[in-house]
Simulated scan of single mutants.
Amino acid sequence: MPSTREMRLRIRSVKNLAQVTRALETVSASRVRKAIQANNATMPYAEKAWKVLIHLARQPGRDVLHPLLRQRDRVDRILVIMVSSDRGLAGAYNMNITRHTLSEFDRAGVPVDYVTVGRKGRELLVRKKKNVVAAFVDLPSPPSFNDVAAIGQLVVDDYLKDVYDQVFITYTHFRNMIKQEPVTQKLLPLTVVDKEHAKPGDLSATHRTSSVFTYEPDQNEVLENVVPHFTAIQIYKAILSAQASEHAARMVAMRNATESANELVQSLQLEYNKLRQSIITNEMLDIAGGANALQNDERGVG
C-alpha cells in the first residue's frame, strides 16, 4: 500500500497535468477560431474565382483551352497531397487521415507518390514504406497564401511535365467543433462540379451561374495566369480546413483529458482520505491499547 506522502505526490502530479491539458484546450479553442476566420475570409474571392473558371471551362473545346483542364487518356502515376499536423495530442486526427488516404490509394493500380503537409503524416507514411517525394512542415497557424503557394507550384509543374497524370489532396474537412471528416479531392486535371452533385468538402464545387464575363485581353491569357492559381487556392483552403479540424480535435481531446484527470484526482483523494482515516484509526487503537495496558499495570502494582 502506498504511503500518504506518495499519494499526495501523485495527486499533485495529476492536478498539474490537468492544468496543462486545460491550457492546451484554451489555446486550441483560440486557434480554431482563427483558422475558421481565415477560411471564411477567403470565401468571397474563391467563389468569384471559381465562377470565372466555370464560365471558361464550359466553353466549347474546354479540353484544349489549358493543359490543366485536359483529361489524360491514361493514368500511369498519381500524386497525393496528404495534410496532417506537426504535433500530436489531437486524438485520432493524424491516424484517421492516414488511414483514409491509404484506403483510397493502396489499390490504385498505378504507382502513387505522396507530398505531406505536417510532420506526423510524413512519419506515418514513411513507417508504411510509402514514397514521400516532398514534405512541408511547421506552417504557421493559420498560414498565409504565400506560405502554401510553393506546394501548388510544385504539383502544377510536375503535372505539366507529365510526371503525374492525376493529383489529389486528402485532408480533414471541418464541419463543426464536434465533427470533422477525412475527404479526398481531385486537384488536377481541374474538374468543375455542381454543388448538387458534390461530395462533402469538395472545394471545386459551386452553384450554377448565369453571369456573363468579358475577358481582357482574351480568355486564353486569363486561363494561362489564373488556372494554376486556382490549384493553389484549393490547396490553401484545404490546409485551412485541416488546421481548423486539427485544433478542434485537440481541443476535444484536451477537454476529455482534463475531465479524466479531474476524475482521477477525486478517486485518488478518496483513497488518500481512506488511507489517512485508516492510519488515524490504527494510531487511536494503539493509544487506547497502551492506555489499557498502563491501567492494568497500575492495578497489578496496587
Rank of each mutant, 00 (worst) to 15 (best):
T26C: 06
V64Y: 10
S13L: 06
E47R: 01
A41E: 08
L17F: 13
A41T: 06
A35T: 02
Y45P: 01
V64Q: 12
A46T: 00
P60V: 13
N39E: 14
N40A: 02
H66W: 05
H55G: 03
L56T: 14
R58K: 08
V64I: 07
G61K: 10
R31C: 10
V14A: 11
S28P: 05
E47N: 15
T21Y: 13
V64E: 15
T26P: 01
Q59T: 07
A29Q: 05
R70S: 11
Q19E: 05
T42E: 15
A29P: 00
R22G: 05
H66V: 12
S30N: 09
I36Q: 12
E47K: 11
K51A: 08
Y45N: 05
L24M: 00
N39Q: 08
L68H: 04
A23W: 02
V52E: 09
V52A: 03
Y45T: 13
L17D: 13
T21S: 11
T26A: 00
P67L: 12
Q59C: 12
A49Q: 04
H66M: 14
L65T: 06
A57W: 02
Q37H: 03
A38R: 00
K51T: 09
L17P: 05
K34C: 15
A18E: 11
V27I: 02
P44R: 04
N16E: 15
R22Q: 14
A49H: 07
S30H: 01
L24R: 04
V20H: 08
K48W: 09
A23C: 06
Q19R: 10
P60D: 13
R70F: 12
E25H: 03
A57I: 01
A49W: 09
L68Q: 15
R31W: 00
P44I: 01
L24P: 03
R62H: 14
V27Q: 10
Y45S: 06
R33Q: 15
K34H: 11
Q19N: 02
A57R: 07
T26N: 03
A23N: 03
A46S: 11
S28T: 02
V64D: 10
V52P: 00
H66K: 09
L65W: 07
E47V: 04
T42Y: 01
I54W: 06
V32M: 09
H66A: 13
S28G: 06
Q37A: 05
L56G: 06
A35D: 10
T21V: 05
Q59P: 00
